[in-house]
């Protein structure tokens, strides 16, 4: 078995607010293998974005990584000899973290309009990143001139399907349409040849037809460069198309994880099942009541005891659901679930 590129182990992130502390991420563990696409699904407030920001050490105050490890297998100098670093131990603004951000792990943010500076051309912003992380292109450390970096950007723009790339490099972000801006954002994320790409809802703000083009582009680039991708979305259709494996999160914990086929065709956690049932299908019966999940998402200050999903669960097993927190246990080939229905209630955390 190949060693994971990224391994998140028992991650806890809390936000200390005046009213008390919020456990945004409460013991999350998952692995990302090299070249694999991991889909992270969950509703707002489930901690998916905070988990991703923790990987890049971008959690804002008053958020704090309280516990856990984020092990990243870093490529050594000249691409030889790999070292495993724990990202949580690195200083947020230290040189090591800054060398990783953008160069090793890149982010495609959710809102392409807000992600680019409106007072610099998109080309300038990408050139800056390339010159900063010039070792990704020139491992001998010889540096790149502006003209050379610009050449790379034009090539990247062509790669991501931006027409007239040599003119678009000098455009400002507000001169580009939503689809083009998102493509420019992808070009920026790929500009330093990252080995891991975190895509935080990259297609939420764009239309379905543009979304189809962007997803096709990401799949193609992923094949070409072998980049591993963590794909965060709440759109289960997008997950089904993109991911090799899926992590389902609920209230800061992993409810279930496994290969994409198992998650969609043999979901084990009641939450995963309920979530899949609640989406209107493009093939099913119309104008009938959709199965819903009872109740509402609890307030972050008011976390339920035991299994965080138990008050809304329609397959509740018994009193242990309210008393103890189920741990993530393997149930099938590569699939694990944190639910007492699927493991002995003695395995608690």
């Amino acid at each position: 078995m190949t060693a994971p590129l990224l391994s998140v182990r028992d991650l806890h992130v809390t936000f200390g607010l005046d009213e008390g502390s919020v456990r945004a991420v409460d013991g999350v563990s998952f692995d990302v293998l090299p070249g694999q696409v991991v889909g992270i699904v969950g509703e707002s407030g489930c901690g998916k974005s905070v988990t991703m920001r923790s990987i890049l050490q971008l959690v804002d105050e008053p958020g704090r990584i309280k516990q856990g490890e984020i092990l990243y297998r870093m490529s050594g100098p000249n691409g030889q000899g790999e070292t495993v670093v724990d990202l949580t131990k690195l200083a947020k603004r230290g040189p090591q973290m800054r060398a990783i951000r953008g160069a090793e792990i890149a982010l495609i943010p959710q809102e392409p309009m807000a992600a680019f500076s409106p007072v610099h051309t998109v080309g300038d912003q990408i050139i800056e990143a390339i010159q900063l992380h010039h070792r990704q292109w020139r491992p001998d450390g010889s540096g790149l001139s502006r003209a050379e970096a610009r050449e790379i950007v034009v090539e990247l723009f062509r790669d991501v399907g931006i027409s007239m790339p040599d003119q678009r490099v000098d455009a400002y972000s507000w001169q580009l349409s939503g689809g083009l801006r998102q493509r420019a954002m992808i070009a920026m994320a790929l500009s330093c040849k990252p080995r891991l790409l975190i895509a935080d809802e990259p297609t939420t703000a764009i239309d379905v037809t543009t979304q189809a083009q962007v997803l096709a582009l990401l799949r193609e680039l992923q094949r070409k460069y072998g980049t591993a991708i963590i794909f965060i979305t709440h759109d289960l259709g997008v997950i089904a198309q993109m991911a090799n494996s899926v992590v389902v999160m609920y209230l800061g914990r992993v409810a279930e994880q496994g290969p994409v086929d198992a998650i969609f065709h043999a979901p084990k956690h009641p939450y995963t099942r309920a979530l899949l049932r609640s989406i209107p299908s493009i093939v099913g019966e119309t104008q009938v009541a959709l199965p819903t999940i009872a109740g509402t998402l609890p307030h972050p200050f008011n976390r339920p005891s035991g299994c965080p999903y138990h008050p809304r669960c329609d397959e509740r097993k018994g009193p242990e659901c309210a008393a103890r927190v189920p741990s993530l246990q393997p149930v099938d080939q590569g699939q694990s679930v944190s639910c007492f229905l699927h493991h002995d209630s003695s395995d608690t955390q």
């Binding site: 689809g179 259709g237 299908s281």
Partner: peptide, 22 residues
């Protein structure tokens, strides 16, 4: 437009992108 909608089933192969351009 209908072909561009991602179907929530990994067993359904991803269709070709039929609508290009802007």
């Amino acid at each position: 437009l209908m072909r561009a909608v991602p179907v929530p089933d990994p067993r359904i192969p991803v269709g070709e992108v039929t609508l290009k351009g802007e």
